[in-house]
Amino acid sequence: MTASTIKLSTTTEDHHIAKMAAVALGLTVLENAIPSPLPGVKPGLANIITLIVLARFGWRAAVWVSLLRVVAGSLLFGNFLAPGFFLSLSGALCSLAALALAIHLPQRLFGPVTHSVLASFAHITGQMTLIYLWLIPHSGIAYLIPIFATAALVFGTVNGLVAARFMDKDENP
């Protein structure tokens, strides 16, 4: 009996995207082990990978890596199509939209830190909007916005610096 095989033809870019998404997934798992003081406040380490992919392979690849990470991550944690999944997705989509605009800023002046901060602000904006429209339609959640915004600024800056450091090493090893 001959084994039937399905051969998918893949490009080098596919391999890059798959590898980077796998690393991002690893960081997501790692991050879930870190206790958080408030649900929703987490460092978003996987976004370091998104930033690196954005700089190296462009926005389209970053979209792939980011969305693959969200979907595969939700399968891994068993919350695919649960509220947590849609929160991740809305955050990721808003971040990607912000990044699509941010890459057009002059590169001489704006680096990964700007990309990261803008993306993380977009991320909480997307999540808070979804929370308000779908999960908690109450203006009381506005009280939490400054907390989330502060976390976004801090973690956005740190992630941006880490991504910048990795890219420095790539350029001058």
Binding site: F110, P146, T150, R165
Partner: peptide, 25 residues
């Protein structure tokens, strides 16, 4: 690793948070 524009972004971020907390809290 921080370019001039990055400082600007961070400053804008901090201002944004201060305005938000003033408005909300």
């Amino acid at each position: 690793d921080l370019k001039p524009g990055d400082w600007l972004t961070l400053l804008a971020g901090v201002l944004c948070i201060i305005l938000l907390s003033n408005k909300v809290w």
